[in-house]
């Protein structure tokens, strides 16, 4: 037991992996073997990157001790900026960076306001949730702009690839981003500062870490990933709807929390956030395949989130009660 707790403290995402395996087995049985079929996995893997990218950003930000409720709106605003520009005949090479720059700007504003006025990011980004959503609707006029058919290089972002067309290109992008952010957090000095800033702010400050800049950088990364994820979804759908990404912010927080990230900051891993996102997709998909009424999805998601936080809190308390031995 002691050993297991130690392992858990070092790898809090393991509980999520274990649960994922259990769920996969249950759904496999319930769906008469459809769940793990190539076709269904292709469906899960095709949609998963969009939410998982958002979850990666939110997880990073939560480890840094902050919160972003505006990711769902940025998820819509970013591709809308790109779409409006594309509809006006602006080439993709300009419209795509313009969209991402919008996302970065939103992150910068979120970060600056939170740090400068020392208010909870929960409030800053709640405001930004409305602001960014409103801007999305305003610049589109309420209707999706008509994007010329060949304006977006869809083959680079969403074409099917791999053996048996198992993956979309978005999955490759997602893996690349996940590895990059994961390494950033675990192997670089910046990652050390993020953890210190979220783990215990006074200590980070007294050790001379530029905590304000670290936080703002995390807000910007989080926003950028949400905008990129939204852009991928729009390429898949072909048109930027002003309403996409509604409720996504809460699913992303749920993913991070299910994956072992602490709301108080300092604890969590990128892999954990991804596993949380996969769990949410798997539950969504598995319930449908098991012929359960789809309206139960939110109940399952909500229960799992609460359950995960309780279990994580309990395990953490247990693990903390163990003292390090001296030789």
């Amino acid at each position: 037991m002691r050993r297991l707790l130690k392992i858990y403290m070092e790898k809090p995402e393991l509980a999520g992996i274990a649960f994922l395996i259990v769920l996969a087995v249950v759904f496999q049985v319930q769906s008469d073997g459809v769940f793990l079929s190539a076709q269904n996995l292709q469906g899960i893997l095709g949609l998963m990157p969009e939410m998982a990218l958002v979850a990666i950003g939110v997880t990073l930000l939560m480890i840094c001790g902050e919160f972003d409720l505006s990711v769902g709106s940025v998820f819509a605003l970013t591709p809308m900026v790109m779409g409006v520009l594309l509809a006006d005949g602006v080439p993709f090479a300009l419209a795509f960076p313009a969209g991402l720059a919008t996302a970065l700007t939103v992150g910068l504003i979120n970060g600056l306001i939170t740090v400068r006025f020392a208010i909870p990011s929960f409030i800053t980004t709640l405001g930004m949730l409305f602001v960014a959503r409103s801007l999305t609707v305003v610049i589109s006029g309420g209707f999706p702009p008509i994007i010329p058919p060949d304006a977006m290089p869809r083959e680079v972002f969403i074409a099917f690839v791999g053996p048996g067309d198992m993956f979309r290109m978005s999955f490759i992008w997602f893996v690349g981003v996940a590895v990059a952010i994961g390494l950033l957090l675990s192997h670089t000095n910046f990652g050390n500062w993020v953890r210190a800033t979220g783990g215990f702010l006074p200590a980070a400050q007294s050790m001379g870490i530029p905590t304000s800049r670290v936080k703002i950088a995390c807000f910007m990364l989080c926003s950028l990933l949400a905008g990129f994820a939204g852009t991928i979804q729009v390429m898949r759908l072909g048109a930027p709807l002003p309403s996409i990404g509604e409720g996504l912010e809460l699913q992303a927080v749920a993913a991070a929390v299910i994956g072992g990230t602490a709301l108080t900051g300092g604890i969590g891993t990128i892999l954990g956030g991804i596993i949380g996102a996969v769990l949410i997709r798997v539950i969504d998909n598995g319930l449908v395949l098991s012929r359960v009424d789809a309206n139960w999805f939110k109940l399952a998601l909500g229960s799992l989130t609460i359950f995960a936080v309780i279990v994580n809190a309990w395990l953490r308390k247990k693990a903390r009660a163990m003292k390090v031995e001296t030789d």
């Binding site: 953890r195 210190a196 783990g199 215990f200 006074p202 980070a204 007294s206 050790m207 300092g266 604890i267």
Partner: peptide, 26 residues
Amino acid sequence: ETIYQYNSMVPTMSIARNMFIGREPL
């Protein structure tokens, strides 16, 4: 170097990481 009762260490980080906060060998 200043050592405080509470705020010189991050409890959720390892000893090695705490030793080098802000001065990590790269």
